[in-house]
């Protein structure tokens, strides 16, 4: 019988963590494409910003559903603690939402003149995007649950995963909308590989640091999901598909799906192992 109590957070929170990650990741990918990419990456930019905007709205809904009533979300805005991830998180949700809105608006309706502004805005927005993708992890590191906090890597891990799922989401949409011919698809994929590799590295260090404290996911009920669903299915397999099958677009689409599923599984096992 553990001394420390679990917050009994459930699926709503898992979804919130997952969606928030994608939103942050997608926005940041779009911003990079916007600033460093070329004209053929426009679709990436548009999809990225818009996806971020839609998902951030969904995040708000999820949070409120978990808390019960909308007013309870406002309680968090009545108060600000700079050292408290959850407190800042609540604020950032709003701020990032604003950026996502402006960026998407400019991306769709902005004139040529406004493009410069759009890029600068997006560079700043990226910071908040990253925040949204990672703060949910830092929040776990800041709890008393040894499994969540001891490695002090949750934030880093969630960020890598957020970025990669964000990219996967964009590439999937490109695939579905048939825009796989363009440079964008390839570039997103390429950068996603980096994110996935990084995520694998962090996970390795994470498990190393935790040792037996990682048991909740490496052993028992969640082990198959973790090893099979995340490590093998959600990270290694997509990498291989991308390396060997990047000629075949369909495989690219499949890889994106796998990454997304993997990203969900990551949040799922980590949260539910302590629910």
């Amino acid at each position: 019988m553990d001394i420390v109590k679990t917050p009994d957070w459930h699926l709503l929170i898992v979804w919130y963590f997952f969606i928030g990650g994608i939103a942050g990741g997608a926005y940041f990918t779009a911003a990079i494409a916007d600033n460093y990419g070329g004209v053929r990456d426009r679709s990436v930019v548009r999809i990225g910003y818009t996806l971020a905007l839609l998902l951030i709205g969904l995040c708000g809904v999820l949070l409120i559903l978990d808390l019960g009533t909308p007013s309870r979300f406002l309680n968090m805005l009545g108060h600000f603690k700079f050292w408290n991830p959850m407190s800042i998180g609540a604020w950032m949700l709003g701020v990032f939402g604003a950026f996502a809105f402006v960026s998407s608006a400019l991306a769709w309706f902005g004139s040529e003149q406004s493009a410069g502004l759009r890029r600068k805005v997006s560079l700043i927005g990226t910071i908040f995007g990253f925040f949204l993708a990672s703060y949910t992890g830092v929040l776990l590191s800041g709890s008393a649950q040894p499994f969540w906090s001891e490695a002090r890597l949750m934030g880093a891990l969630f960020l890598a995963s957020g970025a990669s799922t964000g990219m996967a989401a964009i590439s999937l949409l490109l695939f579905l909308s048939g825009e796989t011919s363009g440079e964008g698809f390839r570039k997103v994929k390429r950068s996603d590989r980096v994110a996935i590799l990084l995520e694998l590295v962090i996970l390795a260090v994470f498990l190393g640091l935790l040792g037996s404290a990682a048991a909740p996911i490496t052993q028992g009920a969640f082990a198959p999901l973790f090893w099979g669903g995340l490590i093998a299915g959600g990270l290694v397999l997509p990498l291989l598909l991308d390396f060997f099958g990047h000629r075949v677009k369909a495989l690219g689409g499949l890889a994106a799906v796998l990454v997304l599923v993997g990203g969900f599984i990551l949040r799922y096992v980590i949260v539910m192992a302590r629910a």
């Binding site: 940041f28 460093y36 070329g38 990219m167 997103v188 980096v194």
Partner: peptide, 8 residues
């Protein structure tokens, strides 16, 4: 990683 990927 992303910058490298997207850089023209």
């Amino acid at each position: 990683g992303a910058v490298l990927a997207f850089r023209e």
